[in-house]
Design a protein around this nucleic acid. Sequence first.
DNA 1: TCGGGATTGCGTACGTTGTACGTTCGGCGA
DNA 2: TCGCCGAACGTACAACGTACGCAATCCCGA
Lengths: 218, 218
Amino acid sequence: MTTKTPAKREPLERDKIVAAGIELADDEGVDALTMRRLAERLGFKVMALYNHVANKDELLALMVDAVAGSIGPPSEDDDALEAVRAHAIATREVLVHHPWAPDLWLRFLPGPNRTDHMEHLLATFARSGLPPGVAHHGFHAVNNHVLGYTLQELAMDFIAADSDALATIDLFLASVAPDTHPHTVAHVHQHVDGHTGSSFELVLDLILDGLTRLPEDP
Amino acid sequence: MTTKTPAKREPLERDKIVAAGIELADDEGVDALTMRRLAERLGFKVMALYNHVANKDELLALMVDAVAGSIGPPSEDDDALEAVRAHAIATREVLVHHPWAPDLWLRFLPGPNRTDHMEHLLATFARSGLPPGVAHHGFHAVNNHVLGYTLQELAMDFIAADSDALATIDLFLASVAPDTHPHTVAHVHQHVDGHTGSSFELVLDLILDGLTRLPEDP
DNA sequence: TCGGGATTGCGTACGTTGTACGTTCGGCGA
DNA sequence: TCGCCGAACGTACAACGTACGCAATCCCGA
């Protein structure tokens, strides 16, 4: 009875590794996601992970795909473009909650969940009544807007990560000569003073609206 | 006379290091840009670089800023939105020639050249006659479109880097069930068959056009 | 002409990373 | 009961960024 079931711990599984990876990246940033640290967090040693995951890249790809899986499908009842709009906003929201994800989203081939995500968006465009060519471009326009915009916003946060945002802004402003760069200084102040909100939804609408105005065969 | 000026080589300079870094990243990808390899390419040993550059991050930031410096200023004669359009296209073109740049563009505070780039775009919007709020959002919309779109396109190339593009597409298609994901399969085929060109300019125009249609105070 | 500081380059070394390889061990089918 | 198989582990290695101290060189004032 000495070695029998000695505080038997749960064995490792792929899904648990992926989930722990997401947690770790959320908590401490993707740079802190090291195979050693991840194993430690799970109570194992490094090489145990490699029994379930081919290498770090595969792990990262699985992580993004898991995140993609948490984005709900678009509504099938609403007006198609309204559903596209809601889906875009939902996608962005999920990505914002996992700031490391957009980068990786671009770096790997889509996994099953991201493929679903693609299919959802394409299907919604397909029932929009827009000409096929327009729908094709619309898919890219919306997809790119969501990812690009989120990426850009998160990059700001990342730059300012080791100090508060205002200090970073001051640092930048100190490097800009106001007489030669008046518009830049003014633009930054517009942000600080909060006179202008996020452009995300505004530009999204502008794109969706523009799509309906496009000729049959762009 | 043994050690006297023994094949005197050019001393190292900041600019040369940055230029060599850009070359190396262009030639072999940013992952191959290692302080050791860079020093080797310049004919020095690693630590010599650190007399001119604080650390690798500073080097990378200098590299993007140098790239930004190679983007010409927008025309001041053309119609303002026409100039914005041309500037966006010029920016994209430069970024495409340095596939590693867009990533880093997001990661660091702007240096002098990028600050100029900002000022140029903002100034052009300022003379467009668009209401200030619209111009503010327009700046972000255009900036984001250029960077996001380029990033996304380059990511595709990067994924397919170690095989030809078609093989990568086949790999992806093999993972997609055509009966459950008909739109995805069709969309990919549209790309392969070249029935649809790049959405870049199309969506850019759509954004610019949309801006002129926006209300005074969005 | 002659020091002598300042700059530039170099060698060595450390800690951290991803991961290849060979061994150990516990549980399960025969 | 035996033997096997997969999971976990320990060790090891190459490559990375970079801290630190020393050596060579250059420039400048006396």
